[in-house]
Nucleic acid binder design. Structure first.
Lengths: 96, 96
DNA sequence: CAAACAAGTTTGCAATGCAAACAGATAATT
DNA sequence: AATTATCTGTTTGCATTGCAAACTTGTTTG
């Protein structure tokens, strides 16, 4: 029932939501969509990856490296659970 | 359109939601309801107060001090705005 | 070949959440 | 009446972490 802080961080929450609707997205797409610095995006992705919420696919588009991300099943589940938990926090207001 | 980090912190979000449904609540009520340590609750309330999201009423119940909290209008508005913003983040998934 | 560009990663700092220590007052115990 | 425990909060110290800037590795352009 605890809020998952890995997901809860606003930038990462947006990342997770975008990935949940896109099957896969690469570094630059996320970068421009979210307007983060490259450094911060990198750190966030690293964190999500080390939680096994997404998997990374490194390849080359022509000669330039391309890093692409995809939600794992664990990531999807955790994201769904996150929203459930948040909804239940939202219900706390209905005690009046 | 940015997520308000003062509210976003899980403990404080719960506090705000409880207060939004109760007109007022005192320190011990929040303490037992949220199961935080007194120290942490104190810090969170201080933060919310310094953002003017709630106002503090210190009194005595008999001889023992009692600290009671109440959402301000600014607090209510910010909380409503917070949920709006979060809802719009939630919509990010619907790009597929 | 040197300078600019591209894609990420690593580093350093400032902010902050959390637990433990502290404070100040009242109530209970011996 | 002195010490011990309780109650209500506040302050302090540390470990984590988000963010910006610097760095790295490689590629393109003049």
């Amino acid at each position: 029932m605890e809020i998952d802080r890995i997901i809860h961080e606003p930038a990462r929450l947006r990342i997770m939501m975008i990935l949940s609707g896109l099957e896969q997205a690469d570094f630059n797409f996320l970068l421009t969509t979210l307007s983060l610095t490259r450094g911060n995006l990198s750190r966030h992705m690293e964190k999500l990856e080390s939680a096994a919420y997404l998997k990374v696919k490194k390849s080359f588009k022509g000669k330039i490296p391309n890093t692409s991300y995809q939600l794992t099943q664990k990531g999807s589940k955790s994201l769904a659970q996150y929203w459930e938990n948040l909804d239940s926090v939202r219900q706390l207001g209905n005690s009046r």
